[in-house]
Design a protein around this nucleic acid. Sequence first.
DNA 1: GCATTAACGTGATATATATCACAAATTATC
DNA 2: GATAATTTGTGATATATATCACGTTAATGC
Lengths: 187, 187
Amino acid sequence: MENILRQQIEKIVPLTDSEFLFVLSHFSVGNYKKHQYIVQQENPVPYVHFVVKGLLKSFYVDKSGKSHILQFAMKDWWITDNQGFYNEQNATLNIDCIEDAQTYYITLDNREKLCAELQKMEFFFLQKMTAGNIALQNRILSLMSKNSEERYMQFLQLYPDLIHRIPKTLIASYLGISRETLSRLSH
Amino acid sequence: MENILRQQIEKIVPLTDSEFLFVLSHFSVGNYKKHQYIVQQENPVPYVHFVVKGLLKSFYVDKSGKSHILQFAMKDWWITDNQGFYNEQNATLNIDCIEDAQTYYITLDNREKLCAELQKMEFFFLQKMTAGNIALQNRILSLMSKNSEERYMQFLQLYPDLIHRIPKTLIASYLGISRETLSRLSH
DNA sequence: GCATTAACGTGATATATATCACAAATTATC
DNA sequence: GATAATTTGTGATATATATCACGTTAATGC
């Protein structure tokens, strides 16, 4: 039970040892260096990653060249470019490592095989996707109804672990405000 | 094949007649009047609704009393307060009818039973939830990277049918801008 | 059909936040 | 451990958008 992926799945559905080995056999392990890209705009998105350790971010670069962070992903989080991965299109997002990272990653094919063969994994992914939906909706409402300071406070409360690992510049980019404005808030 | 729910499901998974009847037996039909609430902040959220006809909106009322529209739902769309429904909590959102509406609605229990008994329905819901995720992520990026005018243009392009059915005030509230600003754009 | 309510447009002004610019402090890297 | 690169703070200014206020038009409901 020391495997972090197993722990995460078992928060939602129980697994026998052999079931977990079966699950795991559909994944590969990847090791990545700080600054390394694992998904690049305009390129295919072959995998969804489950982060074992380290820290990554997904971000969109708009036409004026500005970056907007969609997601951070630390231990225990899933990350990919959903649109690219699930629709088998080229990425509109980039994903790179803020810290050296290790992930379990899986292809769409393997994910589908896994779900077909082990019904409870489909349930697991549905639960995860649902939780993701709720989080995204809350983020939208936050962007629409809160000012910079309130959004920053909410971030502090939601992700206290991240504050010390991520430069303010990136937090600003996640919150949709300029780094200067964030700097003037933080104290 | 004249049933709109069946059509929607069959876009993703094929159904036999008896399978569809089985699916349908898990739903009830609701008829609602313009201005009628089907979900209210602070109250339970017993159902997710599939819209057969009419038009609804879900919205959040912030502490200053301002409304922010999270979603419109017309024919063929699903709507609920996800957080309330899936976590069996009281609603943080409201949902009401912009036009008289008819829905198929289903409880969480029935939805789970249905998925357990008919595997392909779980796949269907997972696909829908995934598509929803992608849309929400795009909306977040739009809020962060586009100005009012660009967001309005994007809305026009994405939902051309809605423009003529929804007052500009509501579109502004969906886009996260004031009705005056939208008015100054629209022409 | 008339009264009420909602929707819309538009001016004047306020305000939050972005942008530009620069220096200081901190962190990474060979 | 020294050099380069990144991060951070802060002033001055610009700007998009919100807010307030009012009149007009259109839609709704009995």
